[in-house]
Simulated scan of single mutants.
Amino acid sequence: MEADKIIESIKRSARELFRKYGYNKTSVNELAKRANIAKATFYKYFDSKELILHAILMEYIQENVKDILKKNVGEEDLAVFLGNTILKVSRLTYTVCNEFVGWEFIRESANAQEYLKTLSDDLEFLLLSSFIQNDTIAASISEKKLTFLIKTSKNIVFSFAFTAVTEADVRKNFISFQKEILPYLVHATIH
Rank of each mutant, 00 (worst) to 15 (best):
T147E: 11
E104R: 07
K33F: 06
F105T: 09
E16H: 12
L82G: 10
A35I: 11
H54M: 13
T189P: 00
Q178P: 05
D122K: 10
H187F: 13
N64H: 13
L149S: 07
A3T: 15
A32Q: 02
H187P: 00
K145V: 01
N36E: 15
M1P: 09
Y94G: 01
A161D: 02
V157E: 04
N29Y: 14
I156H: 03
Y21S: 13
D135W: 10
E180G: 04
S48R: 06
Y184P: 00
A38G: 09
A40E: 11
D47K: 15
T26E: 05
I68P: 04
F100G: 00
I156W: 02
T26W: 05
T26G: 06
V65Q: 12
I190D: 10
D47N: 14
V28A: 10
T41A: 05
A112D: 05
S48H: 03
D122S: 09
I137F: 02
A40G: 12
L123Q: 11
I68A: 06
S27K: 04
A14R: 01
I61V: 15
L149A: 12
N173D: 11
K11Q: 15
D67E: 14
S176V: 09
A32W: 03
Y45K: 03
S159W: 06
F105D: 08
T95R: 14
D77T: 07
F125W: 04
I175A: 14
A161H: 03
L116C: 09
L17S: 01
L69H: 06
A32N: 03
S109F: 06
F177N: 06
K88T: 06
I7N: 06
E75V: 15
L51Y: 07
D4V: 08
L182V: 11
N111R: 13
L87I: 07
A139C: 03
R107A: 05
E59G: 12
T189S: 05
L51G: 01
N72P: 02
D47I: 14
A168V: 12
L146Y: 03
L116W: 04
L69I: 14
S176D: 10
F131N: 02
L92A: 00
T166Y: 02
I175N: 13
A40S: 15
E75K: 14
S27Y: 05
F162P: 04
Q178N: 15
V170R: 08
L149C: 05
K39H: 11
N64P: 00
A79S: 15
K49D: 03
R15I: 11
N134K: 07
I150P: 03
I7Q: 08
R34P: 00
A164S: 15
A55P: 00
F42G: 00
E8T: 11
F158G: 01
